[in-house]
Design a protein around this nucleic acid. Sequence first.
DNA 1: AATGAATGAGACTTCATTCAT
DNA 2: TATGAATGAAGTCTCATTCAT
Lengths: 208, 208, 208, 208
Amino acid sequence: MRSENEADGQKKRSFIETARRAQIVACAIEVIAEVGYAQTSLALIAKRAGISKGVISYHFKGKDELIQQVVDEAFTSGDAFVRSRIEGQMTAAAMLRAYIEATVEFYRTHRAHMTVLLDIWSAFRHEDGRPKLDTTANEPEMAAVEEILRFGQLAGEFREFSTRVMAVTLKQAVDGVLTQMAAYPDLDFDAYTRELVTTFDLATRKER
Amino acid sequence: MRSENEADGQKKRSFIETARRAQIVACAIEVIAEVGYAQTSLALIAKRAGISKGVISYHFKGKDELIQQVVDEAFTSGDAFVRSRIEGQMTAAAMLRAYIEATVEFYRTHRAHMTVLLDIWSAFRHEDGRPKLDTTANEPEMAAVEEILRFGQLAGEFREFSTRVMAVTLKQAVDGVLTQMAAYPDLDFDAYTRELVTTFDLATRKER
Amino acid sequence: MRSENEADGQKKRSFIETARRAQIVACAIEVIAEVGYAQTSLALIAKRAGISKGVISYHFKGKDELIQQVVDEAFTSGDAFVRSRIEGQMTAAAMLRAYIEATVEFYRTHRAHMTVLLDIWSAFRHEDGRPKLDTTANEPEMAAVEEILRFGQLAGEFREFSTRVMAVTLKQAVDGVLTQMAAYPDLDFDAYTRELVTTFDLATRKER
Amino acid sequence: MRSENEADGQKKRSFIETARRAQIVACAIEVIAEVGYAQTSLALIAKRAGISKGVISYHFKGKDELIQQVVDEAFTSGDAFVRSRIEGQMTAAAMLRAYIEATVEFYRTHRAHMTVLLDIWSAFRHEDGRPKLDTTANEPEMAAVEEILRFGQLAGEFREFSTRVMAVTLKQAVDGVLTQMAAYPDLDFDAYTRELVTTFDLATRKER
DNA sequence: AATGAATGAGACTTCATTCAT
DNA sequence: TATGAATGAAGTCTCATTCAT
C-alpha cells in the first residue's frame, strides 16, 4: 500500500502515482462542488474519474486523507497567488488594495475550489466530533494581513485599530464575494472589488 | 401519525406534542453543535433526549422536517431580537450601530444556534444536490440592512456606495464574530463590537 | 381487553363493540382492495375508519385476528348466497348452472371482498411461514360441488369423471371471472356466465 | 456498483456476476417458496445464500429488481417449454392436449417457481399500490391459446364459443393443478391431466 | 497498479403493539 | 371505550473499506 511510503518520509512517489493522486483530487473537487460534501461518496468520485473505487483506497489511506488533500490544494494554491501580488507594493494602502483585488480575482477563477472549501469546512471532523478545520486554519493568511495592517499603522498611514479584528473583517468581507457569486452568477466582480477597496481604505486610513 | 395534521393546515398541535417537538429540536441543536451535522444521526439525538428513535419519526415526518425546524428556529429567533433593537433609533448611523451590537449580542448568547446554522448551511440539500439553504435565505436580513443604508444616503448621513455590497460586507463582518468565538472562547465581545462600529462608521459616513 | 371475553366463550359482546368490529373489518377490506395487503398497515385502516390506531388493538387481539375476520366475512357471505340459489333446483344440470350463475353474480356484486381474499390468500401465514389459507379452506365449497356432480352421475345425467378434478376445474373456471374483472372493468358478466354454463354442460353431460 | 452497467444497455456482465445473480435469484425463489413473499427479507435470502446482505444490494439495484428477476425467470422458463411441445401438433385438438399436458408437466417439475409466482402475484406492487403483475402479464400465453382455439373453429374441429372465455377457463383449469399440488403432495398428475384433456375435448369439439 | 467482489456497520424509516390517561 | 404517545424490532439501502486476483 502507498501509505507506508508516505509514513516513513514520503520520499519516493512514482510519477504515475503522483498523476493519479492529482487526478483523483481534481475529480473529488468537481464532484463535491456539484453535489456537496455530504452527498459525495467514493463511488461517485471514482465514477467521475472513470476508475474503480478500489483505486482510491489504494492511493489514499482513506477518505479522510483524500479530503485533506483537497483542502490543502485549495488552501495553498490561493496563498501563493495572492502573496505574489502583494509583494510588489510599496505602501500599506497599496498592499491592502492588492490583497483585496488578488483574492477576489482568485475566487473568481477558482470558483469550484472555494465552493468546496466552504462546504468541507464544517463537515470535516475528527472522530470525536471536533472540527478538523476552524479559524486557526486561516491563521497564516490572517497573520500576513495583520502584518500589512501593523506596517501601515507604524508608517503612519493607518489609524489605530485592532489589527486582529480588522484582519478578520477584511477576510470576511472578501469572502462575501463567494456567497454572492454562488447565488448570483453574473456578479460584477470589478465593481464589487472597487467597493471593497474604497470601503477598507476609508476604514483604515488615518483621518486628517 | 403526526404528519397528517401538518399537511391539512397544521390546525391543532396538542400541548404535549408541542413540548416534545421543542425538546427534540433543542436536543438536535445540542448534538449538531457538538459533533457536527454530518455525524448527527437520529439515534444520537434520541439518546440525548432520552427517548427512543421512533419518537422522532412519530413527531416529525422525517429527518428533513426536523432539520428544517432547527433552521427555522435559528433564523427567526435572531431576527425578532435584532429588529426590536433597531427600531428605537433615529439616525441611520445609530441604526447601524444598533444592528451590529444587537447581532453580536445575539451571537454571543446563542452560540449553539449559530454554530449549527453555519454547519447545516452547506450540508442541507435537496435530493438532486441543490442546497436547500443559500444566500437567498439571508435576503430578508440583507434587505433590512440595505434599507438602513439607503435611508442614510438619502438623509445625507452616508456617502455614496453600493448598498448591496456594503450590506453583504457588514453581514460578513459581523459573522466574523462567529468564526472567532468558535476558535477563541474568551473573545472580548465588547471590544470586538466597538471595533466594528468604528470601522463601519468610517466606511459609511459622508466625508467632510 | 376484549380478547379475554372471546377466549372464555365469546358470550357477551356489547352492541357497540359488534358495530365497531364490523366497521373496522369493512374499512380493512376497502383499504386492502385499494393498496394491497402487503401495503396495508393498521394506521391506514384506522385513518380510513376515522379512528385512532389504538382502537383496533383494543377490539382485536392483533393484526392477525382482524385479518382472520376479514377472511371469514368474505368466505361466509358468499357461501350462504350461493347455497340458497342452488337449493331450489331439481336436476344436477340445473344445480350446476345455478352454482355458476350465483357465484359469478356474487363476485360481480362483491368485487372488493373477492379481490381482498385473493390478495390475502398467499400473504396470510403462520409465524413459521406455513400458509394459514390454502386449498383446504375451499373444501366446504368443493365438497358441495362434488356432491352435485356425484348426484348427476348417479342420476345418469352426467358422464363418468373424477368429481374432484371437475370440481376444482369448475371453481377455477368461475374464479377466472375475478382475474378478468380486475383487468377489464367493463366485462360482460352475462355473456361470460353463458359461456361457462355451456362449457360445463358439454363437459359433464352424458354423451348420447 | 452493478446498476450502471445495466442502465446504459446492460452490455457486459462478467461471468462471476452472472453466476452470483443466478445464485441469489435461486435462493430467493427457495426462500419465498418456503416462508412466503411477505415474510421474505433480504437478510433471509442472504443467509440462505451464505453471503452478506450487502452482496444483494451490490448485484441488484434494490429488492424490486431482484423480485422482478425472479418473476421473469418463472415466466420465461415455462413459456419456451410449452411452446416447443405444441409446435409438433397438426390438429387443434392435439395442440390443446399438448398445451395441457406440457403445462401440467412443467408445473410438476417446477413446483417452487410456480408457488412463488402465485405468491408474488398479488404482493408485488408499485409504490402507489397498483399491482405490477396482473392478468395482462398472462396476455402472451392467453393469446397463444386463443390462436389455437380460433384455428380449431376455422378448421371446423371446434364449435363456436368465445375464444377469450375458453382460453381463460383453460388457463385457470390448468392452474388448478397448482392449488391441488400445494395441498396434496401425492397428487396423481397423469390422471389429473387425462381428466382435463377429456373435459376440454368435450367442451370444445363440434357436436355431431 | 488496478479491479471487481464482498463485507458489515450504521442510517433512516415503518409498523404492530403497549400503556397511561 | 377511546386516544395520543411511545417503543423497539425489523426492513431496505448506502458506504467506506478490505481482499484475492
